[in-house]
Amino acid sequence: MRGLLKLLVAAAVVSAATGLWLTAPNRVAPERFANLTGDSIKGEHVFTASGCASCHHVPGAEDKLTLSGGMAFPSDFGTFYAPNISPDSEQGIGGWTLLELANAVTRGVSPEGQHYYPAFPYNAYNKMMDQDIADLHAYLQTLPASAVPSKPHDVGFPFNIRRSLGGWKFLFFNDQWVIDVPPELERGRYLAEAQAHCAECHTPRNILGGLDTGRWMAGAPNPSGKGSIPALTPNKLTWSAEDVAYYLESGFTPDYDSVGGHMAEVVENFSHLSAEDRTAVAAYIKALPAPGTK
């Protein structure tokens, strides 16, 4: 009997330790970023392609570069609010080193070692090149500072236990490409899978909020309530690659209806990228496999 008890205690200790180990924040190796110097001009492209402003600008504001945050993201787990990422050293991220930004953007770990909620698309940004992160870091410093404090997330138990996000990451964190593509489609894949994080809205999620990669970009319910996010997969999307590229440039569908909702922000970003980049994303979209065939 005593032996069994000992065994149970030992098992509990091991599983608790495993749990703590599994859920501990996993940071990047500092030497990866030690010798990188950011270029703020190139960083603007990274910033635009990655859509940072689309979520972090003040809701309803014409000024899309003062990134005080505040935009609400309703979900099954609660409502998340985009934080202040302006260069303010108190309320924003002005004091962050490149390494701290890299850990936030590619690992979802704050400078204090807390997990971020995956409403922040680090599970896409984790596929970004280190130099792009360095350039982004340089560019973010050039934006106007705002002393508006970040709004706390409105998330109930048990999802308010940040440590549990370590379990989420264990299950779903993936810094490998989702779709295999030939070399000529790699640029489009980089833009779509890593930077523009298209799948965050266009791919359905499982009950734990992880992306269902077997139905990659197959469309999903709109987390904000009404309507749905359209599928980009060949079983649904009837647009040509040219149509997709033109939509990303002008916001017009092939029927000359116009883009709306959050996608209007995405098109705004893409309209500032090069025609080559839009064509590359369109080619990647047209190469997506039908759901269930990957």
Binding site: G60, N222, K226, G227, S228, I229, P230, E249, S250, G251, F252, S258, V259, G260, G261, H262, A264, E265, V267, E268, S271
Partner: peptide, 18 residues
């Protein structure tokens, strides 16, 4: 592009998704 921008400017907030 300018016309598309004016459509987007209104549709991002005031029109519900399909």
């Amino acid at each position: 592009g300018k016309l598309g921008g004016s459509c987007k400017g209104c549709h991002d907030t005031y029109r519900a998704p399909q």
